[in-house]
């Protein structure tokens, strides 16, 4: 599904990603763990096409296509979804209007018919139940005045509506209490299937108790320094990132 080769990326003058190789097959869930500043969010941003980052070397192929050639909106239409670490507040645009516009853009790209207001309402109500989100959040401006937990639920709600095939979760667990974490993870797990893949980025092992990965990678200073099964996450939790950084030092 996704093939990353020798990916180098910069933010301003600084090189953040220094040669990432990563291959994620259909239906697989991969986790990326790593200390602050290791390049986790940069990787997420590069995948979604965040303009602040520049790819200087390497390639990303998604379903055989050159992902780096695509504008952010084209990536979304092709089935890529980034759950933001810091979802943006947009005053004056209702959540309802936004989600409907987004869903219809994606349905059109998939060759499906647009949904009308009534069908959209039915659909969104059903998905909101999964993430236990209060109805009134649909009539409010996007993320404006939402609590941290509500913002993250809103991200997962969008994911449930858009049904992407490749999902990147950028520290979706940050700022969530254990109950909210469970709800959010439940939403994510709803989408697991043989045709969908995920990259779950997290600082802590905790999230991976709920979204159980097939493969865990450890990112350090812009490179993947270790990969393993889900037990690697537990090992990291016990020994701390110092263990990896120490091991990878020349």
């Amino acid at each position: 599904m996704l093939e990353i080769k020798n990916l180098h990326a910069t933010a301003g003058d600084a090189e953040i990603l220094k040669g990432i190789d990563l291959s994620i097959g259909a239906g697989e869930v991969h986790a990326i763990m790593g200390p602050n500043g290791s390049g986790k969010s940069t990787l997420a941003g590069v995948l979604a096409g965040r303009p602040a980052f520049a790819v200087t070397e390497g390639s990303i192929r998604y379903k055989g296509e050159d992902l780096l050639e695509l504008e952010p909106e084209k990536r979304a239409l092709a089935g890529i979804f980034l759950a933001f670490q810091y979802p943006v507040e947009i005053p004056g645009v209702t959540n309802n209007y936004f989600l409907k516009a987004s869903l219809n853009a994606i349905r059109t790209a998939r060759g499906e018919e647009e949904v009308d207001a009534m069908d959209f309402l039915t659909l969104v109500k059903e998905k909101m139940k999964i993430v236990e989100m209060p109805q009134d959040l649909m009539g409010r401006s996007i993320n404006e005045g939402f609590s941290g937990g509500e913002k993250k639920r809103n991200e997962i709600l969008q994911m449930l509506l858009l049904e992407p095939s490749f999902m990147v979760l950028d520290e979706t667990d940050s700022g969530l209490d254990i109950d909210a974490l469970r709800v959010v993870a439940n939403g994510v797990n709803h989408l697991r299937g043989p045709e969908r893949s995920m990259l779950v980025i997290t600082h802590y092992q905790r999230l991976l108790d709920y979204i159980v990965p097939d493969v865990v990678h450890v990112l350090s200073e812009g490179r993947i320094v270790r990969s393993g099964g889900k037990e690697l996450a537990h090992e990291l939790e016990e020994k701390g990132y110092g263990w990896i950084e120490g091991a990878s030092a020349p």
């Binding site: 096409g49 909106e73 943006v88 005053p91 645009v93 987004s102 853009a105």
Partner: peptide, 23 residues
Amino acid sequence: FYLRSRGIGVEAARLLLTRGFAA
């Protein structure tokens, strides 16, 4: 970027944000 990452084209996104400003 947020709007674009949800499949909304750049021009439509700019329009939406500007209209949001006026709302």
